[in-house]
Design a protein around this nucleic acid. Structure first.
Length: 886
RNA sequence: GGGCGAAUAACUCAGCUGGGAGAGUGCAACCCUUACAAGGUUGAAGUCACAGGUUCGAGCCCUGUUUCGCCCACCA
């Protein structure tokens, strides 16, 4: 036996790396393109190539790995498809920053060279996160790793674009969009993050011609006034009902602009007069459309004032705000300024304030796609778990606006549209054309814009499997089983995959969407670099081991909105890993290469019990994982391993293992011990892959990897009836032991003192249980002498524990402390009395007897009977004790 | 403005279709009993946010209130 080589404490460093490399090199994570086995697929939410592993990834990956490893243990053909996302703006920003450090701008470099640089960066430092996923133990099929910009995926993107265009679902047009002046690109509505901000509301007089009077408008953005093409009032507004003027003068410019009337204007806000800037405000844009107003852009792509703003030209938009206000004040046109909290949009990549701006962009007409995607969830083809997210999903799908998909950056899928310089023809092609398809001219130019990153991610579930080719992989694995993700990208990603999947595959991309919580710090705050509250998952792994960390995440993964991460908790599960390690160390001292078969007919009660519990646990773990209740699964196996296997079972079989009951018993116990340890390792493997594999490799009786061991059966070789009896009997034995321990502790008998006990029982079965498990009681309660007595009246001093129909007397000659035992008994009686009261109250209630279901009434009656028996016996003992005191 | 969620032991949280409240940590006491002190045994600790209602019975269902968090929306 090699237990000498096992360290006392489990040390994960080195072990994790060893096993991960072995699994990978042996191809244990590989899926089969075609197979008779049940197919099970998950596509990874592709992290950004720029990504660094954070807690959110860790939870997300752990959950998926648990499901994949669990399915493999059940013999499925599992595909966990990995890859990364090119993350257009984010990646471009990083490379630009690097270049800036060398004093080079991307414009200086030119498009082609710049994109080359990005690829170089990607090869060198991109995808670092993949190695971090491996540290976690992620069992992805790495040979299939994909990238949203690789050839296959790019082909898929083109095909989808062209088809959507041909279906009339992609169009180009001049609309107001969200513009980031820092990234100099358009953004979709989703890519704008709104934040409440302390601003000012400026009241400005727009005078009538040749008058000191005018309309006072209220605005938070005076700098846009140069683009005003009207002032709007509500026709119902009393204040403006008698207005005769048709125009006002736009201050600082001298231009005349019309007064329009529209019910859109809120009479409650400001002065009830609204300046209208169709080129820089989405609402004003619609208003302008309705009233055929001119659209005048006054802020350029970099956020500076344009030539048409006169002396303000060239100023930054916020500088201009100050300057304009000052100028207005000087002219006496600023009526007042009051503070106002409003919500301002920021770029989700660089946090710059977004400028709503008129621009020519490409859009996807999403309504028809959204309809299909919405229906797929309504009719149950895809299930969202937890279900309350469905409502959010529907809500969004129902109110969706067209998706701006063009980005004015260089890193990404270039829009496959060419324009002919000669005849103006527009070509939308899957393969690059070399001449105009209508006039044959060679002077054609491709659109310079690239597509929104999320456009390619939307195709991920099928593009990664080889679409548009008809691959075996698609046939085998599409639609995938589950998509696991946080709710923060429900709209960005999940909704769009649903749209593209239903449209291009004719089937949903996944059957289940499991939305997990977001990980926050221990105070419930979002982890962010600026707050400095980020816990680095890799550091946690270094410190506590990947297994402990994964188990913590699983235990935390209750279906909810967020989980609070604390290292304290990880430490607890590190201890659990260590507990398992030591249980294995102990077991290995007793196991041999051949421990024989389990002879079900000769097993001890403890053996039968642990087999029954193993089966029950296997069932609970399966159910937990299959229903996305990972915390239930984790706590079931935790409870089993620590408290049932270690605390009770291992202690209970020590007499047998040390051959205090003969060779035969020892052999039987070994066979069961082996089986239960193996089952425990397998059940734990999805949660703690490394330590379970390490221990597995040390078992003398098994070969191969724990990954292929097969998930334990759910019956344990016992019938349900047997299991019931066994658990009841064992429960009784535990109570007897706990009763004795309680007496020892409460009346302060040292643990080193061996006890003498006398058992009195009126129940044959109970006597038999104690008798046949005598050594268990002796060992666990530290008893040296155990006798049965038919006589319940004792002449010697004793403390008594009552369990069902049995009274256990702990004999206390010389050591008894009457007072302590009296207090203990009284306390016990008090407790019982209380319980008895509540039970009787129910049984005395006629409506309860009348209306409650029979089995409930029956149960309560039994409870009452048990409590009464116990109560009687306790009183008897208390009375005797008092007698002896005198 | 609309929607979603949370409030349970000192702390962090479980508690799925209503039957009488659990875990981990922490706390207290005792113990280095030949796997484990990263451990063992025993114990204390809760008007389940508040107010009503439905029910024989409510942490769970209904109504309202308070506090906190998140998401969405065209808050000049």
């Amino acid at each position: 036996m090699s237990s000498d080589s096992l360290e006392k404490g489990y040390n994960p460093s080195g072990i994790e790396k060893k096993w991960y490399e072995l699994w990978e090199s042996k191809g244990f994570f590989a899926a089969e393109d075609k197979s008779d086995k049940q197919a099970y697929a998950i596509v990874i939410p592709p992290p950004n190539v720029t990504g660094v592993l954070h807690m959110g990834h860790a939870l997300n990956i752990t959950i998926q790995d648990i499901m994949c490893r669990y399915r493999r243990l059940n013999g499925d053909n599992v595909l966990w498809m990995p890859g990364t996302d090119h993350a257009g703006i984010a990646t471009q920003n990083i490379v630009e920053k690097n270049l800036a450090a060398q004093g080079v701008s991307r414009e200086e470099l030119g498009r082609e060279k710049f994109v080359e640089q990005v690829w170089k960066w990607k090869e060198k430092s991109g995808g670092a996160i993949i190695n971090q996923l491996k540290r976690l133990g992620a069992s992805c099929d790495w040979d299939r790793e994909r990238f949203t910009m690789d050839q296959g995926l790019s082909a898929a993107v083109r095909k989808v674009f062209v088809e959507l265009y041909n279906q009339g679902l992609i169009y180009q047009g001049q609309y107001i969009i969200n513009w980031c002046p820092r990234c100099t690109t358009a953004l979709s509505d989703l890519e704008v993050e709104y934040e409440d901000q302390d601003s000012f509301l400026y009241y400005i007089t727009y005078p009538f011609e040749n008058s000191r009077n005018g309309l006072v408008v209220a605005t938070t953005r005076p700098e846009t006034m140069f683009g005003d093409t009207a002032v709007a009032v509500n026709p119902e507004d009393e204040r403006h009902r008698n207005l005769v003027e048709q125009e006002v003068c736009l201050p600082l410019t001298g231009k005349k602009i019309p007064i329009i009337r529209d019910a859109y204007v809120d009479t409650e806000f400001g002065t009830g007069a609204l300046k209208v800037t169709p080129a820089h405000d989405p609402n004003d844009f619609t208003l302008g459309e309705k009233h055929s107003l001119k659209r005048i852009k006054v802020i350029d792509d970099n956020g500076n004032m344009m030539e048409n703003t006169g002396k303000f030209a060239g100023l930054d938009r916020f500088e201009c705000r100050k300057a304009a206000v000052a100028a207005l004040e000087e002219q006496g046109l600023l009526v007042k300024t009051e503070p106002l909290q409003n919500s301002v949009g920021h770029c989700y990549r660089c946090k710059t304030v977004v400028e709503p701006s008129l621009s020519k962009q490409w859009f996807v007409k999403v309504a028809p796609l959204a309809q299909e995607a919405s229906d797929a969830v309504k009719n149950g083809q895809t299930k969202i778990i937890p279900d309350n997210w469905s409502k959010t999903y529907f809500e969004w799908m129902d109110n969706i606006r067209d998706w701006c998909i063009s980005r004015q950056i260089w890193w990404g899928h270039r829009i496959p549209v060419w324009n002919c310089a000669r005849c103006g023809a527009v070509m939308v092609e899957e393969t690059d054309p070399d001449r105009c398809s209508s006039c044959g001219a060679r002077e054609i130019a491709q659109e310079s814009d690239v597509l929104d990153t999320w456009f390619s991610s939307a195709l991920w579930p099928f593009s990664t499997m080889g679409w548009p080719e008809k691959t075996d992989l698609l046939k085998t694995f599409y639609p995938t089983a589950s998509l696991v993700t946080g709710f923060d990208i429900l709209f960005f990603w999940v909704a769009r995959m649903m749209m593209m999947g239903t449209r291009f595959m004719g089937d949903v991309p996944f059957k289940d969407v499991y939305i997990h919580a977001l990980v926050r710090d221990e105070n419930g705050k979002k982890m962010s670099k600026s707050k400095g509250n980020v816990i680095d998952p890799i550091k946690v792994i270094d410190h506590y081991g990947a297994d402990a960390f994964r188990f913590t995440l699983a235990a935390f993964a209750a279906q909810g909105r967020d989980v609070k991460m604390s290292e304290n908790r990880v430490e607890g599960y590190r201890n659990f890993v260590n507990k398992l390690w030591n249980a294995a160390r102990f077991s290995l001292m007793h196991l041999e290469a051949d421990n024989g078969d389990i002879e079900y007919n000769n097993l001890s009660l403890a053996d039968q019990w642990i087999l029954s519990r193993t089966a029950a646990t296997a069932s609970a773990v399966s159910q937990g994982i299959e229903s996305y209740r990972f915390n239930d699964a984790a706590s079931a196996v935790y409870q089993f391993v620590w408290h049932e296997f270690c605390d009770w079972y291992l202690e209970a079989i020590k007499p047998a293992l040390y051959e205090k009951e003969g060779v035969e018993k020892k052999k039987l116990a070994r066979a069961v011990l082996e089986k239960v340890l193996e089952s425990s390792l397998v059940m734990l493997h999805p949660f703690m892959p490394f330590v379970t594999e390490e221990i597995w490799s040390m078992l003398p009786s098994v070969e191969g990897s724990v990954m292929h061991a097969g998930f334990p059966g759910r019956t344990g070789g016992l019938s349900a009836m047997q299991a019931d009896t066994v658990e009841n009997d064992m429960g009784f034995l535990f109570e007897v032991i706990s009763g004795i321990r309680n007496i020892r502790s409460e009346i302060k008998i040292k643990p080193s003192t061996l006890l003498s006990i006398r058992v009195h029982t009126t129940d044959q079965a109970e006597q038999r249980i104690i008798e046949t498990n005598r050594s268990v009681v002796e060992n666990l309660a530290r008893v040296e002498s155990l006798v049965f007595s038919s006589n319940n009246t004792s002449t010697t001093a004793s403390a008594a524990a009552v369990v069902k129909n049995t009274t256990v007397h702990v004999l206390l000659e010389g050591v008894i402390d009457f007072d302590k035992e009296e207090t203990r008994l009284s306390k016990e009686i008090e407790k019982i009395t209380k319980e008895l009261l509540s039970v009787s109250k129910r049984l005395n209630n006629e409506s309860f007897l009348d209306k409650a279901p029979e089995d409930v009434v029956e149960k309560v009656k039994e409870q009452q009977a048990d409590l009464e028996t116990k109560n009687d016996k306790l009183h008897l003992n208390l009375a005797r004790l008092k007698e002896m005191k005198h």
